[in-house]
Write a protein that binds this DNA or RNA. Structure first.
Length: 314
DNA sequence: CATCCGTGGGA
DNA sequence: TTCCCAAGGAT
């Protein structure tokens, strides 16, 4: 743990660095509403900024307020989520909008506890919205901040596989006392992790606090564990993704047979869903896996059955 | 607490 | 080409 003067120095250097290099993202603008911040935080979960930008703009133009989104079927949220991934986030964001209208008069809550109670909002997102939308002093801890703390203070290459209580305590200790400075600090450390102190090949030459880095001082020791990659090929997730791609472009309910058999075998042409349907069939997944994927989508509320076919939730 | 849940760009 | 992984949350 840095001494008090060392801590001040870190605050000063990292915040000054941020002031000079911060990307001007639309949800960082002063005019951006708390709703805009909330939407951005949900979309940014496990998703790169560059892919979020265009979808975020469409969403804020179409649904400038929580009430706007809450007034439409959940399926519209899922459809307009496009290919951002993890479509359950769209479903939960819609549910959050409904909850905001019903329980908060249509206004995004301004405190951690109320934010945390919203669907799809966990500890990170609740803290981030309270801080970035309302200027509150919150301990914001995301994957970037964890990595910066791990290297800069703890002297290890990577943070633990899962967020620990010790990490939260450290983050709380590092947080500046002043409200405004703390908000800037949260954004700055996050940006440092995203642009400089990256997971692979960190750009230490560009780091404003490289001379204070415990990991560098220790000779940049390698990670003590190997992160286990996420399986993809042949998984249910892949099949679910392919099914969702079909449902997003479908006009009406998609007959169950279309998922099981080649369109050519069905004797009629699917309306506009040929490409994603072909991609699904190309996976050549076992019938039981397809069943499992469809059942999972129904259970998650990402799909509904109507007239014997599958569609996005109405 | 480990596992599941999408996607696509870059190394 | 294959692998990695990016502003997590829910169970």
């Amino acid at each position: 743990m840095p001494s008090e003067p060392e801590l001040q120095e870190l605050h000063t250097r990292i915040n000054a660095w941020f002031a000079g290099i911060a990307r001007d993202l639309p949800w960082r603008e002063a005019a951006c509403s708390p709703w805009g911040v909330l939407v951005s935080e949900i979309m940014l979960q496990q998703t790169p900024v560059v892919r979020v930008l265009p979808v975020w703009r469409e969403w804020l133009q179409r649904w400038p307020t929580p009430a706007g989104l809450a007034g439409e079927p959940a399926g519209e949220a899922v459809r307009s989520w496009g290919r951002l991934g993890y479509p359950r986030r769209a479903l939960r964001l819609h549910a959050a909008a409904v909850a905001i209208v019903e329980n908060h008069g249509g206004k995004v809550p301004d405190n951690y506890a109320d934010l945390l109670a919203l669907p799809g909002v966990g500890s990170y997102t609740a803290a981030a919205v309270a801080a970035f939308a309302y200027g509150r002093r919150e301990t914001v801890v995301d994957t970037n901040i964890r990595r910066v703390h791990a290297r800069l203070v703890s002297g290890v290459a990577l943070p633990a596989p899962a967020l620990t209580a010790a990490e939260m305590r450290l983050a709380a200790q590092l947080l500046p006392d002043d409200d405004g400075t703390s908000v800037r600090w949260n954004a700055a450390v996050m940006e440092l992790g995203a642009l400089v102190c990256t997971a692979r090949a960190p750009k230490c030459g560009d780091c404003p606090v490289r001379d204070s880095c415990a990991w560098r001082a220790a000779g940049e020791p390698p990670p003590s564990y190997i992160p286990k990659g996420q399986a993809w090929h042949g998984t249910d997730r892949q099949v679910r993704g392919a099914v969702m791609a079909v449902l997003r472009v479908a006009e009406g309910p998609v007959p169950a047979e279309m998922f099981q058999r080649e369109p050519a075998d069905l004797g009629f042409a699917p309306e506009g869903i040929g490409v994603p349907l072909a991609a699904l069939h190309r996976l050549n997944s076992a019938p039981e896996q397809l069943e499992r994927a469809l059942a999972g989508l129904l259970a998650d509320g990402l799909a509904e059955v109507q007239h014997g076919g599958y569609r996005l939730p109405g």
